[in-house]
Computed example of a mutant assay.
Amino acid sequence: MTEAADLTALAPRGVTLLGCGKMGGAMLEGWLASGLPPASVTVLDPNPSDRLKALAGEGLKLNPERLGEADVCILAVKPQMMGEAAPKVAGLAAGGTLYVSIAAGTPISAFERLFGEGAAIVRAMPNTPAAVGRGITALIGNARVSEAQMEAAETLLAAVGETVRLEDESQMDAVTALSGSGPAYVFHLIEAMEAAGVAAGLPQDLAARLARVTVQGAGELARLSPEDPAQLRVNVTSPGGTTAAALSVLMAEGEGLTELATRAVAAAAARSRELAG
C-alpha cells in the first residue's frame, strides 16, 4: 500500500473521481485506507451510495455544483456512458489535470478528442481483485504525461494492488484479455473443479470449499515462491501418480489447457480491438 504522505503530496489540489461503482469505489477505499483525507476527494456519481453520503459528512465533496481544481481525475464510468459523463470534467484540462481512464476498450485518442490534444491522459486497465487490494493495473500515457504524473497515477492505483507500465498502447488489448478478464477465467476454473469434485462423489459444499481454498492457496504459493509456475507444477507431480494422471489430460498435445487458454485470450483480445473501433 502507498504511504499516506505520498498520496497527499502527489495531489495537493485533490483527486476527482468520475463514477464510483465497484472499481471506482475500490480505489476510493484504497486511497482512504492509505491516508488520503476525504476532503481531498471529489466524487461525481448520479446515484451515490450510502457510503459516499457518509463520507460527504467527513469532508468528501459529493456532486458539487462547480468543480474545483484537481491534480488527477479518474475516469471510472462504463465506456458506454463516457460520452455523456466526460464533458462534466472536461474543464479540468485547462488547469493541467491528469486524466486517468479505467474504461475498457477506450483508446487514448478518444479522450484526446474529448479533452483536447494538450491534455495529459493515462489509460489504465485494472482488474476486479482491486476490491480486496490484490489487483494489478497496466498503464500507458500519452506524450503529454510527465514522469511525475505517471508516478502519481501509479501511486494512486497501487492503493489497490500492483502496477505495470506498458511500452505501447497496442499491448492494452492483450492486457485486457489476460489480466482484465482473467479473474473470470479463474472463477470458472473454481466452478469446473467444484463440478468435477461432485462428479467424483463429493458433497457439493465440500467440493466447493476444497476447490476455492485450493485455488486461493496455489495462487498465494505462486505469488510468494521464487520458483516459476512450471517448477511448482513439477514439485507437486510424482511420476506415475494421481497428479500426473490428471495432467496427462490437462496437458494433452493440441487440446490441453494451454491451447484452450490461448484461444480464450485471443478471443478476448479480438473483442477488445473491436470495441475500440
Rank of each mutant, 00 (worst) to 15 (best):
I108Y: 09
T176Q: 02
G14P: 00
V164L: 10
E65N: 14
E147G: 05
L178E: 07
A195L: 03
Y99R: 06
G219F: 11
A90H: 04
L114M: 15
A33Q: 04
V234R: 08
V15D: 12
L55H: 04
A200I: 06
E255R: 14
G91T: 04
R165E: 10
A110E: 07
S272N: 06
A177E: 04
G24C: 04
A138H: 00
T128G: 11
G135W: 06
G25D: 05
G116W: 01
P64F: 13
G219L: 02
V122W: 01
L210S: 03
V164H: 15
A110I: 13
T214S: 14
G241D: 01
A159S: 14
E65C: 04
L166K: 05
A152E: 03
G95R: 11
L98F: 00
E274Y: 03
G197A: 09
P239M: 06
G135M: 02
V175H: 11
C73T: 10
A9I: 00
G57I: 11
D173K: 08
P87L: 15
L210P: 05
Q231C: 13
S40Y: 00
G201E: 11
P129T: 11
A26K: 04
A143W: 03
K88H: 12
E65A: 15
A244P: 09
A76P: 00
L28G: 10
Y99F: 15
L206C: 04
R113K: 15
A207R: 10
T155V: 14
G83I: 02
L75C: 04
L275G: 06
L92I: 08
N127F: 09
L260D: 01
V122F: 08
E162C: 06
S109N: 08
R144A: 12
A222P: 06
L139D: 06
P203D: 07
N127R: 12
M1E: 10
A177I: 04
M81V: 11
L189C: 10
A70T: 03
V175K: 08
I136V: 11
V213G: 01
D173Q: 02
D50T: 11
R66A: 13
T97P: 09
E112S: 08
E169R: 03
M82I: 13
E220I: 08
G30K: 14
V15T: 04
A245I: 00
R13L: 05
A159Q: 03
V100W: 04
L28D: 05
L75V: 07
E167R: 12
E84L: 05
S34M: 12
P37E: 11
G95K: 14
L36I: 06
A269F: 00
G91K: 07
S225R: 06
I136W: 03
A269K: 01
E191S: 01
M150Q: 11
E167L: 13
